[in-house]
Amino acid sequence: MLVGAFKDDSGNFTTANISEILHEEQYVHAFRTSIEISLVTAVLGGLLGLLIAYAAFSPGMPGAVRPVLSTFSGVAANFAGVPLAFAFIATLGTLGVVTKFMRDHLGFNPYDHGFSLFTFWGVVVVYMYFQIPLMILVIAPAIDGLRIEWREAASNLGATSFQYWRRVGVPVLLPSILGATVLLFGNAFSAYATAYALTGGSVNLVPLIIGQQIGGDVLSNPHLGQALAFGMIVVISISMTLYAVLQRRASRWTK
């Protein structure tokens, strides 16, 4: 495939496919949208996942919360693709249960206020369903690594809660949080089935365009598809390298 990205129809070497991607508005736009959606869902999902995980795994929560949340996160992180898209259509689609509830009982129809499940922000809402649980799963070991002794030591030495977080908690967690966010980015960036089933192509994402290029319709150009895939690999490789670096730093604290 890497070879195919640099070939034309008769098999000669060319960089035309790559330069077509870089110059054609549609493809540049697709990469930008894909990266934006992945960034937004990684940051929002990462933040929410972190807060939820910290709330659930902090001392004081009943012991049953943890296994239930971990198991459910495992299921939700794996529940994606076509059924997930439909679950959200049934929830927040034009005739979805929650949409109807808001319209009939709260007097607020989100579709009258610019929201639609089949646009950028709709895809964000749906992707969050697997991003948040993934964050909970990935960040749990790091939160476990925050020893209660550090907190006690800090407060014995007279630190306030804010000082503890500023000087101890956040610096220890930061590499793990960033690493997990990068992982979430890659996770959203490579998603195909969910976006396909949800929007059918009305949101311009790189995986969807690749799907169209190899989908066997008249306009398809496999070499262009391969060049787009090459672009995807470049983006994912960069994020994975970043992930490996951050992971190494994070592992200093988790034994």
Binding site: L48, L51, I52, Y54, A55, A56, S58, G60, M61, V65, L69, F72, A76, F86, A87, F88, A90, T91, G96, V97, V98, M128, Y129, I132, P133, I136
Partner: peptide
């Protein structure tokens, strides 16, 4: 903590309940 946990549980459960309904 309770607030964040409830938000999380709602986000995960509501789509399933809606699909069931």
């Amino acid at each position: 903590g309770v607030v964040w946990l409830s938000i999380g549980v709602l986000y995960l459960l509501v789509p399933l309940l809606a699909t069931l309904l």
